[in-house]
Amino acid sequence: MSDTYMLEATGLTRRYGGFAALNNVSFKLRQGEIRGLIGSNGAGKSTCMDVLTGRGRNQQGTVCLNGQDISRLSERERRAVGLSRSFQKTNIFPELGIRQQVQLAARKAEFDNTEEVLAELSLTAIADRTASDVSYGDQRRVDLALALVGKPKLLLLDEPAAGLTIEESLAMARHLRNLAERWKLTILLVEHDMEVIFAICDRLTVLHLGEVLTEGLPDEVRANPEVIRAYLGSTFA
């Protein structure tokens, strides 16, 4: 892992009236790192993802991607320079063919690696079926395929294992780890499944009430009394 910071987020803040959904949050991700962003419901995780991608208004702070300040870029412009995101709910079109919607995403990204992405996620054999005609696990992989089109530098994943079985979740975690190494991807991962988090992440950042509670190596975070009290519970002590 190099000393290059792929992502530098400084002072990220989003307020709604007098309520701070995110308050002065800062962290850095090294190139090739997989960082877990965890916290209880309402901690600010999805809001943080929104601010990083330029989604929505009322945001402050600086976002740098591979040394380039992208804070003033639109959501689409940030995607074009290499920042991609998936969402909690699948972002797919149920009635469209799988290959067709990956091709549409590739056209928008102006970089067509459709067949590579389909093969990478073992979707080639079902690529001509409509998304509504495949399993939920396959739909989650289609959602990931849409985010991987164009080979982004930084991939933000918002609960990619939501609704999957334990076996499917761990298989996805292993695949993401392998993919990150081979494609030199940097990943910021929001996930409630702690088995996935501890299996895949190099470091963790913990949010609590819109602020950074702590960050560190997975074992350090797992043993932190404040984290146990605020989020993990005795099960992970």
Rank of each mutant, 00 (worst) to 15 (best):
D138T: 11
L185F: 11
C64K: 14
V63F: 06
A43V: 07
A173M: 04
A119Y: 05
K153I: 00
L176I: 06
R140W: 02
D133P: 00
G150W: 04
D133R: 08
L188F: 07
A105P: 04
T124A: 11
I187N: 07
T53N: 11
D138Y: 03
P152C: 01
S169W: 01
K45C: 02
K151F: 00
T124D: 04
A173Q: 06
A147S: 15
G137R: 03
V149W: 01
G137H: 02
L83A: 14
I92G: 08
K151N: 12
L96Q: 13
F87S: 09
A43K: 10
I70S: 07
H175T: 00
D128K: 14
S71C: 11
Q100R: 12
G163K: 01
L157I: 05
Q88T: 08
T130H: 08
D158F: 07
A171D: 12
L188Q: 05
A161K: 00
A173C: 05
G42W: 11
D112C: 05
A162N: 03
E116V: 14
R182F: 01
L157D: 04
G61E: 10
V102G: 02
L155R: 07
K184C: 02
E167T: 10
S71E: 11
E77C: 05
G137V: 01
L154E: 07
R141P: 05
F111H: 11
V81G: 08
S71Q: 11
A43D: 08
M49I: 15
R79A: 15
R57E: 15
N178V: 00
R99S: 09
L185Q: 12
E95S: 15
G54F: 07
G137S: 08
V51N: 06
R79N: 14
L154Y: 03
G150K: 12
V117C: 02
T114E: 00
N58A: 14
S74N: 05
K45T: 02
A43N: 07
L148T: 04
G54A: 06
Y136N: 01
R174N: 09
P94I: 07
L73M: 15
G97I: 09
L83V: 15
E181I: 13
G82A: 12
V51Q: 06
L65M: 10
G42K: 13
L170I: 14
P152E: 00
T53R: 11
C48K: 09
L157K: 03
Q100K: 13
L176A: 04
L144C: 03
R177A: 01
T47Y: 10
T53C: 15
L188D: 07
L144R: 04
V134E: 06
V142I: 15
F93V: 15
L179I: 02
T114P: 05
E181G: 07
K108T: 10
Q139Y: 02
I92Q: 10
R85M: 12
E115N: 15
T53A: 15
R182L: 03
I126S: 03
S122D: 15
L65H: 03
N91V: 04
G56V: 12
V63C: 08
E115V: 09
R78D: 11
A109L: 04
V190C: 06
D138H: 12
R79F: 13
S132R: 15
A105R: 13
R99W: 12
